[in-house]
């Protein structure tokens, strides 16, 4: 339970923030598919996909923590 709460509270926003900060540095030189991240709507998709992916991880971890034997 504690682990799942930690994921939801800390790791999800952290994942989004770290990727966003790193992305800002590389975005100016980016070529190929990555250059599409310069478009605002693609960047919005990136944000939502990372956020929902993090939430999905949190839910799976919550289920693992609740139902895996040996707590």
């Amino acid at each position: 339970m504690l682990v799942a709460a930690l994921i939801l509270l800390l790791l999800v926003p952290m994942q989004v923030a770290v990727i966003y900060i790193i992305g800002r540095f590389f975005l100016k030189q980016a070529t190929g598919p990555l250059s599409r991240l310069r478009e605002p709507e693609i960047r919005r998709d990136f944000f939502w996909l990372m956020l929902t992916s993090g939430l999905y991880t949190g839910v799976v971890v919550f289920l693992l923590d609740t139902y895996l034997p040996g707590a």
């Binding site: 682990v3 994942q15 990136f46 993090g54 991880t57 799976v60 923590d65």
Partner: peptide, 25 residues
């Protein structure tokens, strides 16, 4: 048990942006 749970978290954190690149972009 904890290694399995944290293993899942760490792998997800590493793989999500990679999957964004290969699966979306």
């Amino acid at each position: 048990r904890d290694e399995a749970i944290w293993g899942f978290v760490v792998m997800q954190m590493i793989m999500s942006p990679i999957i964004f690149f290969t699966g979306y972009l």
